[in-house]
C-alpha cells in the first residue's frame, strides 16, 4: 500500500452570484497516492477546475467554502498559514491552467515571468540564485518542456508564441515547483489534436521520470486511457465513480460513466457519438437527491429523495448510485 499524498474529503464550494448562491461542489472526496497518476473526468461545467482551485487555495473572490478538508501529506491545506501555503506552492504542488493564453501575463516577457518563479522556488529551499543561474535554470525548464530555442522563447511576449508553445511554457513554469504533485487542467484541449497528443505524452514522460503524482483533468475518458492509473468521474459537483482505469473501461458502473464511455468516439465506427441527453442541472437549485436523476434512464424513486453515498463494489471500485445498494 503506497502512501497517501493528497486526501480531499467533504469539499463543498459555493459561488455567490447575482440572484443567489450556486452550490457547485457537493461533498467531493478524492485521494492521490505518491507517484500515482489520477484522472478527473467530467463534462464541461461539472466542477473539475473548481476542485483544483480549492486545492491550490486560489478560488475566485465570490467563492464560499462552507466545508472542506484537504490534507496534503497529512496537513490540512485549508488551515495553512500564508507562509505554509507559499512553501506548498513553491515546493510541492503546481497547477497547469486550463487556458495557457489566459494563464500568462500578457504584458511581461516569458523571461520576466519564468525568472520570478525560478527565483522564488529556489529561495524557498535556501538557494539564492544569481542572474546567470536563474537563466540556466529557466532554460533547463523550457528544455524539459520540450521547447526548442529556449533563449528566443524567453525574449518573447506570450502573444508572440503559438498556442502549443504557450502550453509548454506553462508546463515549464509548473515544473519549477511540482516536486510532489502536478495538476494538469485539460492540457492541450484548446489546441489541435496532434499537439494535444504530444502534450499528453510529454507530461506522461515527465511525471514518470520525476516520479511525481499527477491529477490529469479531462472531459473525455478516452483522452486519459493510456495515461492514468485511476479515474475519478465527476458529475455536477459530485464524484460519482472511482476505479482503476482498466476497471472503468471494462465495467463502468454509474449510468453517467456508461454514457461518457458511449461518447468516446470510436475510430472505426464513425458517426456522431451518442452522448448523454440533457444538461448539467441548475446549481442554484440542484436536485435534492442524486444530481444525475434528471438525466438518468435508471432513475428510481429513492434517487429523487436521497443523496447516494460512495459504496465499494469490490476491488476498490467505488460508485455513488442506488443501483448498487445504499
Amino acid at each position: 500500500m503506497s502512501n497517501t499524498l493528497l486526501n480531499v474529503e467533504e469539499l463543498h464550494v459555493h459561488f455567490k452570484v447575482y440572484g443567489g448562491i450556486l452550490k457547485v461542489l457537493n461533498d467531493v472526496a478524492l485521494k492521490v497516492n505518491e507517484k500515482e497518476k489520477v484522472g478527473l473526468i467530467g463534462e464541461s461545467g461539472c466542477g473539475k477546475t473548481t476542485t483544483m482551485r480549492a486545492i491550490m487555495r486560489i478560488l475566485p473572490w465570490n467563492a464560499i467554502v462552507p466545508k472542506a478538508k484537504i490534507y496534503f501529506k497529512g496537513k490540512n491545506i485549508m488551515k495553512m498559514s500564508d507562509s505554509e501555503l507559499k512553501k506548498l506552492r513553491r515546493g510541492s504542488i503546481s497547477m497547469i491552467f486550463q487556458d495557457p493564453t489566459a494563464a500568462l501575463n500578457p504584458v511581461f516577457k516569458i523571461r520576466d515571468q519564468l525568472f520570478d518563479i525560478v527565483r522564488y522556488t529556489n529561495l524557498e529551499v535556501g538557494k539564492n540564485l544569481s542572474k546567470k543561474e536563474t537563466e540556466e535554470e529557466a532554460v533547463r525548464l523550457l528544455r524539459e518542456a520540450a521547447l526548442p530555442e529556449p533563449e528566443r522563447i524567453l525574449d518573447s511576449y506570450p502573444f508572440q508564441l503559438s498556442g502549443g508553445m504557450r502550453q509548454r511554457v506553462c508546463i515549464a513554469m509548473a515544473l519549477a515547483s511540482a516536486h510532489d504533485l502536478l495538476i494538469a487542467d485539460e492540457p492541450g484541449t484548446s489546441l489541435d489534436v496532434t499537439i494535444e497528443d504530444q502534450i499528453l505524452r510529454l507530461l506522461k514522460q515527465i511525471v514518470e521520470e520525476k516520479r511525481t503524482s499527477i491529477i490529469l483533468i479531462s472531459h473525455a475518458l478516452g483522452a486519459v486511457k493510456g495515461f492514468v492509473d485511476r479515474v475519478y468521474v465527476m458529475y455536477a459537483g459530485c464524484i460519482v465513480e472511482s476505479a482503476s482505469t482498466s476497471d472503468v473501461f471494462r465495467e463502468p458502473l454509474h449510468p453517467y460513466t456508461k454514457g461518457l464511455l458511449a461518447a468516446v468516439p470510436k475510430l472505426t465506427g464513425g458517426g456522431v457519438p451518442e452522448g448523454i441527453k440533457g444538461r448539467v442541472p441548475d446549481y442554484m437549485n440542484p436536485p435534492i437527491g442524486c444530481r444525475f436523476v434528471t438525466r438518468c434512464e435508471y432513475a428510481m424513486p429513492i434517487c429523487e429523495r436521497k443523496q447516494p453515498r460512495m459504496i465499494n463494489a469490490g476491488n476498490n471500485h467505488e460508485v455513488a448510485c442506488f443501483l448498487y445498494g445504499e
Binding site: 506552492r89 489566459a102 494563464a103 522564488y120 506553462c170
Partner: peptide
C-alpha cells in the same frame, strides 16, 4: 485583473 487567470497563476506559483 484580480480575477484573471494570470494573477491566480502567479499566486499558485507562490510569488510574494
Amino acid at each position: 485583473n484580480l480575477n484573471k487567470d494570470y494573477i491566480l497563476a502567479s499566486i499558485s506559483h507562490g510569488l510574494p
